[in-house]
Design a protein around this nucleic acid. Structure first.
Length: 414
RNA sequence: AGAGAGGUGGCCGAGUGGUUGAAGGCGCACGACUGGAACUCGUGUAUGGGGCAACUCAUCGAGGGUUCGAAUCCCUUCCUCUCUGCCA
């Protein structure tokens, strides 16, 4: 949730920022008006309530003193009638404001490069040189076929399209990667958590998936539960509606979960192979940070994810997202893109975002700063997407005969 | 899933219609005592909104109702616990 007071006091500035995220001026003006209207109605209503309360208090006194209460009661009744339409208007204004405000994306940071889409993202650096192949490297689905690693057909049979089954060594590689990621994150101070894979709607609203992106989620029928699209949801919401002690910050959490996404709107993209599935494994990092420390924490998280790729010997590049490509909740995002020689391109394998206080406002995550309660900053990032790492290992570690090497750091896990 | 009990501030817990936003305790913060600590003592300590402030409004799981007035009464709903059933 954006800071509505900030919006009201710095409308032009806020408007420029949100236009980059595709919000037009009229929408924003509407929001501002709703906010101002609600404030006015509430002020009037509260004045009447105050009067009502003070008159009500007199009743006790009058009755003890044996005075007549008829006149007082008449006044109170009149006051009450006056409040009814205001209460109605306040309720309507509140609902309208709430629904608009929850659909408003986060402001991009000032330093975020400008741009329209992913083509305008800025490459910060490349790590490791792509290997020179003496043969034409194959795509992972070909290798999956010849090695019997991925059973696409039976995944579809068991569920539907965009599901798959890992078999034998591939399944063990998946498991090895999860362990390797979790262990590595632990050495950086992240506490490992094992969380529910379904969360309720309040939590999904807290991190920003609801109400706007319900179509991307798998909902459990007849329950207020959704399959999580990322561990960011349960991990961040661990502290939903809580007030942390400043000494506890930063809270660093990591966890492995499968992630479930309908991939609505992705029809026709990456239909082949395992790049885009309805279910995939991911190890996530989440940080709850003091607002003044979140940039530091962010850098640490990017470095950690990059180091993991380096340890696996996977060439990658570090991309800073332009404002037009930022997600709904993010104020700034760095993507790590791993080199896929079979596809001959870099593909996203990790996305690390600082949401500043955007999620904290929605999820009411605060910390005590002296006497005041302030919103924390929340950050999240993949370390790493497991399925895509399997794909990257397949393509980068393939031999001419189609066999696949296992990176050295993983050998003790397999 | 069936039966019963219950949901109050960071935690425990009192409170069945009128200065109760809520006793008491624990915890926490600050201060005193100490060489330093523990102990002890003193003070402070719910959240959110409006206002420069004094102050004021809302909130005792959530929603609705009764009443001049509700943490307290009524209805609906969610959740938790215990027992039974089922189950890894």
């Amino acid at each position: 949730m954006i800071d509505l007071k900030y919006l009201q006091n710095n409308f032009d500035e806020a408007s420029v920022k949100l236009q980059k995220k595709g919000i037009d001026a009229p929408t924003l003006e509407n929001l501002q008006t709703l906010f101002a209207t609600l404030k006015n109605i509430n002020a009037a209503l509260e004045a009447l309530r105050a009067e009502q309360n003070s008159m009500s208090k007199l009743f006790g006194q009058y009755m003890r003193e044996g005075k007549d209460i008829a006149e007082l009661k008449a006044k109170v009744d009149a006051n009450k009638v006056e409040m009814i339409p205001l209460q109605q208007r306040a309720r309507e204004a509140e609902e309208a404001l709430h629904s608009v405000a929850l659909s408003m994306p986060n402001f991009p940071d000032d330093e975020v490069p400008e741009g329209a889409n992913e083509d305008d993202n800025v490459e910060l650096r490349r790590v490791l040189e792509p290997r020179n192949f003496s043969f034409k490297p194959k795509e992972h689905w070909e290798l999956a076929q010849s090695n019997g690693w991925i059973d696409f057909e039976r995944g579809v049979k068991l569920a539907k399209s965009r599901f798959s089954v890992l078999r034998g060594e591939a399944a063990r590689l998946e498991r090895a990667l999860i362990n390797f990621f979790l262990d590595t994150n632990a050495t950086k101070g992240f506490e490992e958590l094992c969380v529910p894979f379904m969360n309720n709607s309040a939590m999904l609203q807290g991190t920003g998936q609801l109400p706007k992106f319900e179509d991307d989620l798998f909902k459990i029928e007849g329950e207020d539960l959704y399959l999580i699209p990322t561990a960011e949801v349960p991990l961040t919401n661990m502290y939903n509606d809580e007030i942390l002690n400043q000494k506890e910050l930063p809270v660093l959490m990591t966890g492995y979960t499968p992630c479930f996404r309908k991939e609505a709107g992705s029809a026709g993209r990456d239909t082949r192979g395992m790049i885009r599935q309805h279910q995939f494994d991911k190890v996530e990092m989440v940080a709850i940070s003091h607002p003044e420390k979140s940039d530091e924490v962010f850098e640490m998280m990017v470095q950690n994810a990059s180091d993991i790729l380096t340890a696996l010997g996977l060439p990658h590049r570090v991309m800073e997202l332009c404002d037009g490509d930022l997600g709904f909740s993010a104020a700034s995002t760095v993507d790590l893109e791993v080199w896929l020689p079979g596809q001959n391109q870099y593909r996203e394998i990790s996305s690390i975002s600082n949401t500043r206080d955007f999620q904290a406002r929605r999820a009411k995550i605060r910390f005590k700063d002296g006497k005041k309660n302030r919103f924390v900053h929340t950050l999240n990032g993949s370390a790493l997407a497991v399925g895509r790492t399997v794909v990257a290992i397949m393509e980068n570690y393939q031999n001419e005969d189609g066999s696949i090497e296992i990176p050295d750091v993983l050998k003790k896990y397999m």
